[in-house]
């Protein structure tokens, strides 16, 4: 028994020994993802400079970049950023909360599943934008209707991840919980939720993506500030660079928020014995 112990410890040490070229290799791996956008941007820029495309409708990356710099330089951007991020944060928060509670309930209780899931699935099939007229009538054209729309978008992927995720948790692990006489709440908290966490994170990421989609929809339907408003404004005033600048900012914000979410949840799902860690 002792020999088994020592030999395992030795093998572990070998496995974690740092590889000298590790930092460089990591950089190269991240850099690979930048190749395609850079090539496209350069090609576009070149096409614009040589007059292959008309710049007043398709401004080159340099013009878009200049517009973004100007937005920040004048400080004009901050109000819009704050407005969009606040809506997004509130909508995401409410959507996640509702999706988690209802998803956990439906995933855990067969009765709740039979009672609620058919209705939720039916509602899920309504195109999100179709809610807009109703929300405006019910909740007005200001923040409440926008935040609700975002929350609705975030709700479904989060709900789905738990409602389905709980059902696929290994029955054998649930039985361990039964042997230790866990209450329903503890069974969810100590076994079902942790086991579902990898699926849940995917639900959160899906919800976040939809949230960004819906924040644009909400801001396009009538807002006086926000990145979506900037896009509308760019369209009205015939400035494609303003629209593209907002698009770029949306892309950056979306990627950044997803990165933060993945980074924050990584320690919680590090236990997975998956194909790619």
């Amino acid at each position: 028994m002792t020999t088994e112990v020592t030999s395992y410890a030795a093998a572990d040490q070998k496995a974690v020994a740092p590889c000298p070229a590790g930092g460089l290799r990591r950089l190269a791996r991240v850099g690979l993802g930048l190749v395609l956008p850079l090539v496209l941007a350069l090609g576009w820029e070149a096409a614009a400079r040589t007059g292959v495309i008309t710049t007043h409708l398709m401004p080159p990356p340099s013009t878009v970049a200049a517009h973004i710099v100007q937005l920040f330089a004048t400080g004009e951007i901050w109000d819009h950023l704050v407005a969009t991020l606040t809506r997004m944060a509130l909508g995401f928060g409410f959507g996640v909360a509702a999706g988690t509670v209802l998803g956990a309930l439906v995933g855990y209780l067969p009765v709740a599943h039979r009672l609620l899931d058919p209705s939720v699935q039916a509602l899920r099939n309504i195109p999100s934008i179709a809610w807009v007229p109703l929300f405006i009538l019910w909740l007005g054209i200001f923040e409440t209707s926008k935040i609700t729309l975002i929350a609705v978008g975030v709700f479904f992927p989060v709900y789905m991840s738990l409602a389905q995720g709980f059902a696929s948790v290994d029955r054998k692990l649930v039985e361990v919980g039964r042997v230790w006489r866990l209450s329903a709440f503890d069974m969810i908290r100590r076994i079902l939720l942790p086991a579902t966490l990898p699926t849940y994170v995917i639900g959160l990421r899906g919800g976040l993506g939809l949230g960004w989609m819906f924040v644009v929809a909400a801001e396009l339907m009538g807002a006086s500030e926000g990145l979506g408003y900037l896009m509308m404004d760019g369209q009205m005033t015939g400035r494609p660079a303003a629209i593209l600048a907002s698009l770029v900012l949306f892309a950056i914000l979306g990627k950044l928020s997803d990165f933060l979410l993945v980074t924050a949840t990584r320690p919680m799902v590090a236990w997975q014995d998956g194909f790619r860690r």
Partner: peptide, 20 residues
């Protein structure tokens, strides 16, 4: 009438919780 603390169970598989 249900699992009890005085009776421990060991299954065929270890059934360890992989996140702990």
């Amino acid at each position: 009438d249900g699992p009890r603390p005085e009776i421990g169970v060991i299954f065929q598989e270890p059934r360890l919780l992989p996140w702990l």
